[in-house]
């Protein structure tokens, strides 16, 4: 028995050597999600994360969360955030809009937009950008799954991010979860917006629920009301946009339930489920 466990330990050690990680069980600081004082989860530099939304229609929420992550990484030495998108996808999900970024609290001057023709070029550009030590974060707006973006490609990106301590983010949509070497996978879902002070009928500040589907979280559970663990045991955070970034959204009204099955407490009626299934088949 002890001999066998010795063998397993040796194998683990050699795999860890290949993986260049601190260890499977105890991930290093870079490999965990920290929760900022405001309540926003924050990934460390040197990691590749995937931000999933259910459909391309939700691209706004995913982009907003990515921007807030990137904003935290901006510094004097790393003054630029790169946003990469394929030209053909621009009409599908839209291009970053300067006044909108400004209103969102992100300086448009700090954003460089790279438009590529193919997914291969996009991945190349991401890798290239990850190697530049003056880039704060790289946001690749990939959207749906691509055959080119397989485990090998994500592994390359992940290693590249680690060796140059770059922050890489892939914006994805859909409900399929392909094999990926990304350290973190988040699911971002919009919630009904916050109340506006003087007009109850107007949309207020952005609110979203961010679920950590893959990756470890650092520290203990944060303040109650702004997050917790869902039925699958995944950590989630309910966040609200403020001028200082995303903050924990304390008051969670009953209507603000995420709509998809991932974190939803509400059971779906038959008709709803059928509609959902239809949509899935269209977007897969």
């Amino acid at each position: 028995m002890s001999h066998r466990s010795q063998v397993i330990a040796d194998l683990r050690a050699s795999i860890n050597g290949i993986e260049k990680r601190a260890g499977f069980g105890e991930a290093g600081r870079a490999g965990t999600v920290a929760t900022l004082p405001g309540g926003m989860p924050r990934v460390g530099a040197g990691t590749l994360s995937e931000l999933f939304t259910d459909t391309t229609r939700d691209a706004g929420a995913g982009f907003g969360f990515a921007l807030m992550q990137a904003r935290g990484a901006l510094s004097a030495e790393r003054p630029v955030v790169l946003f990469l998108q394929m030209r053909a996808e621009a009409q599908e999900t839209g291009l970053p809009y300067g006044p909108g970024l400004l209103r969102f609290g992100f300086d448009p001057q700090a954003l460089a937009v790279v438009r590529t023709g193919t997914i291969a070029e996009l991945l190349w550009a991401m890798e290239e950008a990850a190697g530049c030590c003056n880039v704060a974060a790289v946001i690749g707006d990939v959207g749906r799954g691509h055959t080119k973006l397989d485990f090998t490609a994500s592994r390359r990106l992940s290693l590249r991010a680690e060796s140059f301590s770059a922050m890489l983010m892939l914006l994805r949509s859909g409900t399929n979860r392909e094999a990926s070497a990304a350290v973190f996978r988040f699911h971002v879902a919009a919630l009904l917006s916050a109340e506006t002070p003087f007009d109850a009928r107007a949309p207020g500040a952005m609110r979203c629920r961010v679920t950590l589907e893959k990756g470890a979280r650092q520290g203990t559970r944060h303040g109650a009301g702004s997050g917790g663990q869902d039925a699958l045991g995944q950590d989630f955070w309910d966040l609200r946009w403020s001028e200082n970034g995303l903050v924990a959204d304390g008051a969670l009204p009953g209507v603000g339930q995420p709509r998809s099955g991932t974190g939803g407490a509400k059971a779906l009626s038959g008709a709803d489920a059928a509609g959902l299934a239809d949509r899935l088949s269209q977007t897969a």
Binding site: G60, F63, Q91, L95, Y97, L102, F104, P203
Partner: peptide, 16 residues
């Protein structure tokens, strides 16, 4: 450059 924030809402992504 004069990048004054507009008082009215503006989207993050604009369709071309």
């Amino acid at each position: 450059e004069a990048a004054a924030s507009v008082g009215a809402p503006r989207p993050l992504r604009l369709l071309p």
